[in-house]
Simulated scan of single mutants.
Amino acid sequence: MSWVRGLAVIVLGVATAVASAAELPTFTLVFKPDGSFEPQRLEVPAGKFKIELINESDQPVEFESLPLRKEKVLGPGVRSFVVITISRPGEYPFFDDFHQDVKGTLVVLPKP
């Protein structure tokens, strides 16, 4: 019976993580068919937040930020998200690794 308890703990942990991500402040970043981002400059408060990623193009895209150590590949027409925790205000570049000529900036604002 201890394996049942262990499984219950794992399921509860996953459910809590999913619910926690759903309650975070959420911002949207859209990959446009022309290879651009909308918005190209995304302002967020310091702390923990979620960026919903939407690929409106007919090609794969990859959200990547080296200073934030985040990357996420999305197929054509796919939606997904990344959760970021950062306490230091500042500007953090991001780009689409498949279209590196277009850059964006995540602006982390101080907590009010």
Rank of each mutant, 00 (worst) to 15 (best):
I54R: 15
R5L: 09
P76T: 02
I54G: 10
P25A: 10
L68I: 08
E23T: 11
V4M: 01
F98I: 05
K103M: 12
A46I: 02
W3P: 00
P60W: 05
L74H: 04
D97A: 08
G75C: 00
L109S: 15
F63G: 06
Q59F: 05
G13P: 09
I51H: 11
I84F: 06
P93A: 00
F27H: 12
I84S: 06
D58L: 10
E62V: 10
A15E: 08
G47E: 08
R79K: 02
L42D: 01
F95C: 04
D97N: 08
P25D: 04
F81N: 06
K111W: 15
V83G: 02
L29F: 02
F95R: 05
I54T: 11
E71P: 02
T28R: 15
E56H: 10
S2T: 01
L12T: 07
T26M: 05
W3D: 03
V73M: 10
P112S: 15
P67C: 07
P112Y: 13
P112M: 14
V11T: 07
G35T: 07
I86N: 09
T16E: 11
E56M: 12
A22M: 08
R69P: 09
V82F: 05
T16H: 10
T28P: 09
E56C: 10
S20W: 12
A15L: 12
P93T: 04
P33H: 06
F27I: 08
G13H: 14
E38L: 12
I84P: 09
T28K: 15
V11S: 05
V78L: 00
Q100A: 12
R88C: 00
L66K: 13
V78M: 01
V73T: 04
G75D: 04
S87L: 03
Q59M: 07
V44T: 09
V30I: 02
D96E: 06
Y92C: 02
F98Q: 13
N55Q: 04
F81W: 01
I86V: 08
K32N: 13
A17E: 12
E56N: 12
E56F: 08
V11N: 03
K70T: 13
V4G: 00
V73K: 07
S36G: 03
A17N: 14
S57Q: 09
F94G: 00
K50W: 05
L109G: 14
P93I: 03
G75M: 02
L42W: 03
G47R: 13
L24D: 07
E43F: 11
P60A: 03
E56D: 12
E71K: 09
K32D: 11
P89A: 02
A15M: 11
L74Y: 00
P112A: 15
P110M: 13
L106A: 15
I84Q: 04
S20K: 09
V11I: 14
Y92K: 02
G75T: 00
G35R: 11
S20P: 06
K72F: 09
V44P: 05
F49T: 09
M1P: 00
L109Q: 15
D58S: 14
G104I: 10
D97T: 06
V83H: 03
S87T: 00
P89E: 00
D34P: 07
T85W: 05
K111F: 14
K103Y: 08
F81M: 02
S2K: 02
F94N: 01
L7Q: 04
L29Y: 06
V108P: 14
G90D: 05
D96M: 07
I10G: 07
P112L: 14
V4S: 03
